[in-house]
Design a protein around this nucleic acid. Structure first.
Lengths: 252, 252
DNA sequence: CCTTATCCTGTGAAATATTCACATTATGCG
DNA sequence: CGCATAATGTGAATATTTCACAGGATAAGG
């Protein structure tokens, strides 16, 4: 990256939001066109977003909720939306619920009714989302090491923390499922956490879009008999849904 | 808010980022102008930001880092920037540091060198910022109840969590200071947390911009003798700085 | 040290998007 | 029903962005 581009980036980071003419004044050694091209360059690298007549800093959690899981989240957006809407309908007032990390859980967070609820989560971005957009729920964030890839908390004492919390309903996501391997995820830490949550929750609701069915990830954290309800989208094959029902799982 | 505006908001929340023509197609019962006006309306309420030929969802933590503390943060942006830069120069490699919640701390997070560090913080937004923008630091988030106003964690067991963590340097912010009352903040929970941090840290660095000097807030959490270093901006009156130095505090 | 290729930058015209003022239609209220 | 107010549509005026190309800088190779 060029020095000028760094300087523009820093300037915008300080100001938050600038117009092109403001930048052209500040960096008058260069033409408006060059600055425009720099903004395009910086936008591609996700440092900022260009607005009508200028640019704005790229806010942090934007990357988390859209940029990071990124294309994947966007692609299956409709499926996840469908799942989140179904899940939100199952949320009761005045209960304590666990909300998993991940993009499907984020969509559920957005769909959540603005009512008295205690929401326990290992995903700080989801916690912030709820606290900013809703006025009634109480959010409890687990403490520990913040993982870069998943933006979720893990750590030795999450298990101790869970012991002091009573979870009525747990909304859990999985990255893979097969009959042979059960529900699996890619990270060992997540796996341990999900297991503990499932063990302590009165009711476990698994959310998974159809693209993840019939795929295997390294760590299995639950079997069919561990969950009460399974929420998926309308594209999930009937055969799997039937098998789940046969195992006594409520499929929505 | 009108039904149409709600619908547009939901549509953009799902899509993440849309063009005006896309919206005009989707909501073809209304003219482009009306949709344009709706976008303006929604932008004012911080639900989205308008981009070149359309709009984008307003990412959550954007509000935290810019919108929420909002004008205040923007107004004293230069002062805070100055303080953050001075503070960043004091950060050593391979230490464990505590980083407070608040906009000055957020600026410090951005200025932080991308080196091996363990950063303990009660501010999930700051933790996310660091984890997304830097590759080397490890972030440890305290667990507990997420406060709406301050976007910081409080709770009964934060104190227990702190007992298991060793803090070398603590960067702490205050909202008010007078000679008579010491360093004070507006929230009781924050006050307790800051006290515990200060008690356990080897070195305490207080960051405070000059606009907050000579103001009093309800809860005092520290006295002059509790801190090692005081960082303020160039607009702070010499008299106060001299008094601090006389008390054995290193003023920068 | 020169030549050539490539990249970066500036210019102005063309395309596109946005704003504005005003006409028109809906909505609410006495 | 009729007035007042707000919401919406229209098209011209304005502003912004894009595009294609030209000129200049920079780097690599001879």
């Amino acid at each position: 990256m060029k020095e000028r581009q760094e300087a523009i980036k820093r300037y915008i980071e300080r100001k938050g939001d600038v117009t092109l003419s403001e930048l052209a004044g500040e960096f008058s050694d260069w033409s408006e066109m060059t600055i425009r091209r720099d903004l395009e360059f910086l936008e591609q690298r996700r440092f900022l977003i260009r607005t009508k007549r200028g640019a704005r800093i790229m806010p942090t959690s934007y990357e988390v909720s859209v940029g990071m899981y990124g294309e994947r989240e966007k692609r299956n957006c409709d499926l996840k939306q469908e799942i989140a809407a179904k899940a939100a309908a199952l949320v009761e007032t005045d209960i304590s619920m666990y909300l998993d990390a991940g993009s499907t859980a984020m969509m559920l967070a957005r769909e959540l009714p603005d009512r008295n609820l205690i929401i326990i989560t290992s995903a700080p971005n989801i916690g912030i989302e709820i606290v900013l957009k809703k006025t009634n729920p109480t959010v409890i964030l687990l403490g520990g090491t913040l993982q870069r890839k998943t933006i979720s908390i893990t750590g030795l004492n999450v298990l101790d923390q869970l012991k002091t919390l009573n979870i009525d309903t747990a909304f859990v996501c999985a990255s893979g499922y097969t009959d042979a391997t059960g529900f699996s995820v890619g990270g060992q830490h997540e796996c341990v956490l999900k297991r503990a949550v499932i063990a302590s929750a009165r009711r476990v609701i698994m959310m998974m879009d159809s693209t993840k069915l019939n795929s295997i990830l390294p760590f299995t954290f639950a079997r069919l008999q561990d969950i009460d309800t399974f929420i998926t989208d309308s594209k999930a094959p009937e055969s799997i849904k039937a098998a789940f029902r046969a195992a006594g799982v409520h499929v929505i």
